[in-house]
Design a protein around this nucleic acid. Structure first.
Lengths: 170, 170
DNA sequence: GTGTTTTTGTATGCAAGGATACAAAAATAG
DNA sequence: CTATTTTTGTATCCTTGCATACAAAAACAC
């Protein structure tokens, strides 16, 4: 039986290896995207993280910082500092809530219009580079897998099942 | 024409949205994995990034820091600081090269054996949480998509086509 | 041989974001 | 109406990692 089990064992090893490897690659590819994006956009002084945040603000105008933190799955402190940077660049503005003086509601600033004039197309070009060689079906499978993992993470971290997790779409 | 194309237009929008959304989710899920991993391993004082680095050292004993940086797709400075932390915790050790006095070759420290006693299984449990609801085929598709994107990134960033990108397998 | 270029690792500064602790304000208990 | 609890945003510190600039050493001129 020296011959009967090794292929199963190899199959088991392979499964473990692929699962661990995919997990690591998410981290690696995420960094590579940021590096590439930040370099390409250096002339416009905008980073991937900042663009993501602006997109979320733009799609949820008037949201509170806590709501944005939940949408982007990050902590309030991190959001606060990010919004500080965006506010300083006049890409967003924070207005106090009328009824609740703790709350600062976040809106896109009109100076960000120049961003929206070129960023969507520029970002799409960068994205296309990363999806080179992948068909629509493969990208959609990737998308679905990541949505599943996001949902698993929210459950594991003890957050209730949220809505359909609307993310930025440009 | 206002009526003849809408389903195509919707299809185009959907395609753009999914591509952008998947790109964002990589970033988001990567953070969620780190957060979850770091919390779960807080008692053992090891982070996801540190575990990844140790795995690479363990699978490439005697590698130079530059070689490790290339394997992990990161800069030499970042690797250097990470190795500083791992060295301080006695998980790796750096030995000078005999022929090239610039080079410091990196080896796993035997004190890391305790890590290897429990980490692979613990990490695998965490990974399983994130893959909940996904079959082997889906994980493998995810893995392949990420490999493609890694390759695309290397090409776009001007690095030559490397070997089969052996990553950590536990 | 000496002079230039490349390579290796480090020091410094920054952005991103998690953990924690906090003050102010709101909600809730009693 | 007061006392406790919860919520919102901020301040502080830490890890991760990129960019840049650097010194030392090697490799390659010639």
């Amino acid at each position: 039986m020296t011959q009967s089990e090794p292929s199963q064992a190899r199959g088991r090893d392979r499964r473990v290896r692929i699962r661990a490897d995919a997990m690591y690659r998410i981290h690696e590819v995420s960094r590579l995207i940021s590096t590439y994006f930040d370099n390409a956009m250096a002339a416009h002084c905008i980073t991937r993280a900042q663009w993501n945040a602006i997109m979320h603000v733009n799609q949820n105008p008037g949201a509170t910082q806590t709501e944005l933190a939940d949408l982007m799955q990050m902590g309030r402190a991190g959001i606060g500092k990010m919004l500080d940077r965006l506010e300083q660049k006049s890409w967003i503005e924070r207005r106090p809530d009328e009824n609740d003086s703790r709350v600062r509601r976040v809106y896109p600033h009109k100076d960000a219009d120049t961003l929206f004039a070129f960023m969507p197309e520029a970002a799409r070009r960068l994205y296309d580079d990363f999806y080179a060689g992948m068909g629509d079906a493969e990208v959609e499978q990737l998308h679905d897998a990541l949505q599943t993992m996001r949902r698993n993470a929210r459950l594991a971290l003890g957050k209730d099942e949220p809505g359909p997790a609307n993310g930025p779409s440009a």
